[in-house]
Simulated assay, not measured.
Amino acid sequence: MSVRLKLTLSYAGLVVITGALLVATAWVFVLRYIDPNLVFRTTRWLYSPTDPLRGFGYPAALLLALLLAFGLVGGWLLAGTMLSPLRRITQATRTAAGGSLSHRVALEGRSDEFRELADAFDAMLARLEAHDAEQQRFAANASHELRTPLAITQTLLDVARSDPDRGKDPLVEQLYGVNSRAIALTEALLLLSRAGRRSFTPEPVDLSLIAEEATETWLPLADRSGVAIHVAGEPAPALGSHALLLQLGTNLVHNAIVHNLAGAGTVWVTTSVHPGSVVLEVASTGRELTPALVATLVEPFRRGTGRVRSDHGGVGLGLAIVKSITSAHDGVLTLAPRSGGGLCVSVRLPTTPAPAGQRYSVVT
């Protein structure tokens, strides 16, 4: 039973018990000393009794029934009024759990236990928001500071690689690869920080076009890896940043290709429209993944069992960036292992009115 129903039954039970005690008190201490003929005359319009107890019992039972009905209705309304602040706090908790730390309960009214709880919760959210903003600023500032020396190092390595007098130096090639990876990591950290700050102007975006563009970007890599990509769906209008959502799509497709079955893998990219939302789903074949392992894949620098580093393996922030971009668009990210191996990732975003368009289907 809900708390409101429990409180309602408690209120109604208390009212009925109180009424019963009052009736019993009236009978024991008052009515049994009254002339029975007087009882007969005052109750005969309700009942025609033959003894005082029965003459008093009928109106007493009617009174208790009315008290029960009054207790249930009044208790339900009173419980709803008392629990309304708790519902607001619960809604704020769900909003914060979805990633929005800027929401506040802001409970008005006089100071009581619910007001103290709401104020304490708002203070906690404020501290969490400040801490989260501090972490994002640190990541952004650190990434900015690293970009310049890494770019200079990359330029020096480019000059060394193109020097005909040096020839092909294995050490220079290795340093070039390490530095390129550091640059990719820096750019990924900047993107992750930007998505977390929601520093973008929302605009109409079609996830079906995002899916097509992301797929075309990684077609050469898919061909070299022997992975087939199937794209199908329908126009899926959403509202957000085209650049960030494109990054989300390319990260999902890239992740599905590099963590697939080499030479015999498949990737399915689909879009769909549902009441109030649109969905971009990327499913891929691959090795068996447990639900416990899949739940950790959105953590930064986390890779699944058997996922090895390669030239196109990324920097370990692909799904973490997808999660941050999804949260910045008030969406829901879902990861689930596929039956038979592989991973299925779906991004559900709030929809906007769809423009006139036709379904598309591209198979490569």
Score class of each variant (00 low, 15 high):
Asn141Lys: 10
Ala142Trp: 10
Ser143Asn: 06
His144Ile: 12
His144Thr: 10
Glu145Ser: 12
Glu145Tyr: 14
Leu146Glu: 10
Arg147Ala: 15
Arg147Gly: 05
Pro149Glu: 07
Leu150Ile: 00
Ala151Leu: 14
Ala151Asp: 10
Ile152Val: 14
Ile152His: 08
Ile152Asn: 09
Gln154His: 12
Thr155Asp: 09
Leu156Asp: 03
Leu157Phe: 04
Leu157Lys: 05
Asp158Pro: 00
Asp158Leu: 07
Val159Tyr: 01
Ala160Phe: 06
Ala160Gly: 06
Ser162Gln: 11
Asp163Ala: 10
Pro164Gln: 04
Pro164Ile: 00
Pro164Tyr: 00
Arg166Lys: 09
Lys168Gln: 12
Asp169Gly: 01
Pro170Ile: 07
Leu171Ser: 12
Gln174Glu: 15
Gln174His: 15
Leu175Met: 14
Tyr176Leu: 11
Tyr176Arg: 13
Tyr176Lys: 04
Gly177Cys: 02
Gly177Ile: 01
Val178Gly: 01
Asn179Thr: 15
Ser180Cys: 06
Ser180Asn: 14
Ser180Trp: 01
Arg181Gly: 10
Ala182Gln: 00
Ile183Trp: 00
Leu185Asn: 11
Leu185Met: 12
Thr186Pro: 03
Thr186Tyr: 02
Ala188Pro: 08
Leu189Glu: 13
Leu189Val: 03
Leu189Gly: 13
Leu190Trp: 03
Leu191Trp: 06
Leu191Lys: 09
Leu192Asp: 15
Ser193Glu: 06
Ser193Trp: 06
Ser193Gly: 15
Arg194Glu: 12
Arg194Phe: 05
Arg194Met: 09
Arg194Asp: 13
Ala195Tyr: 07
Ala195Glu: 05
Ala195Pro: 08
Ala195Gly: 09
Gly196Cys: 07
Gly196Lys: 12
Arg197Ile: 06
Arg197Gly: 09
Arg197Asp: 11
Phe200Gln: 06
Pro202Val: 05
Pro202Thr: 06
Glu203Ile: 02
Glu203Asp: 12
Glu203Arg: 12
Pro204Ala: 09
Val205Glu: 04
Asp206Ile: 08
Asp206Met: 11
Leu207Asp: 09
Ser208Leu: 11
Ser208Lys: 05
Leu209Asp: 14
Ile210Lys: 07
Ile210Gln: 09
Ala211Gln: 08
Ala211Gly: 08
Glu212Trp: 01
Glu212Ile: 15
Glu212Val: 15
Glu212Ser: 14
Glu212Pro: 03
Glu212Thr: 15
Glu213Val: 10
Glu213Lys: 14
Glu213Ser: 14
Ala214Asp: 05
Thr215Glu: 11
Thr215Tyr: 06
Thr217Gly: 03
Thr217His: 13
Thr217Leu: 15
Thr217Asn: 13
Trp218Ser: 09
Trp218Phe: 14
Leu219Asp: 03
